[in-house]
Design a protein around this nucleic acid. Structure first.
Lengths: 118, 118
DNA sequence: ACTTGACTTAGAGTTAACTCTAATCAATAT
DNA sequence: ATATTGATTAGAGTTAACTCTAAGTCAAGT
């Protein structure tokens, strides 16, 4: 059980962001007797997954969608699978774009080197 | 020589965006007798380069920086090379992040398949 | 002469994803 | 007993990168 501050620290995001994700229904932590948020290990696992999706440009809206399907129960498993498969395709397209840009830069940098060296 | 509409069409971006890039000093097209913008082949090459940088998450501010160094002249070549080399490192880091997420998703999707098939 | 369509400008509005503010409260440290 | 720390809330503000609006000019076509 972690406080919001500990959880933020642990994940490398701000407490503000955690409250924002809660407002967006992406994580709903427990509350202690005093009303403070408490994050369990499984909340943290879920957040780490969310962060991975974010890092790969999945919009908050889609993450929200995934979270809400999850809450709906087991009968949404196929929909969730589709969502993840779709995102995997997007990741692969991004990799291709990066690959192309990398090659372009390698070439451009080489021309600069030639210019600079003389 | 292309009008703003043709150029937008050609590059797959909007005329609005081209005006915005001009406001940001990223491209300064020529003007015809009537005051309308005219983009040459070399403007278009530059814009294609800009679009590649954008697609790989380079912020407009950095692209602006690069453009301004370019305008300053040949003595900024080393600075420009550094900027590009730095961006190439960022591209490679992004590829690694995508690679990791891809593997994670492959695993997660496989678990869903197992669940769904039964 | 009139309409159409592409262009012009300054500046306002939009969207995503935070990020912060102000006012408050509860537990701990001195 | 007071001060600090870390939490709470609703709601406002920020930033990047567009995206649009309003009001207009101008050339070409019917």
């Amino acid at each position: 059980m972690h406080t919001i501050g500990e959880t933020a620290e642990l994940l490398g995001i701000s407490a503000h962001t955690l409250r924002y994700y809660e407002k967006e229904q992406i994580i709903i932590p427990l509350r202690d007797a005093g009303g403070d948020r408490r994050y369990t290990e499984s909340h943290i696992k879920w957040l780490q997954f969310v962060i991975k999706l974010k890092e790969t440009q999945m919009p908050i809206a889609s993450i929200k969608k995934y979270a809400s399907l999850f809450k709906e129960g087991d009968h949404t498993a196929a929909d969730r699978l589709n969502l993840l498969a779709e995102h995997q395709r997007s990741i692969r397209a991004q990799m291709q774009t990066l690959q192309d840009a990398d090659e372009m830069l390698t070439f451009k940098i080489a021309s600069y080197r030639t210019l600079t060296e003389v």
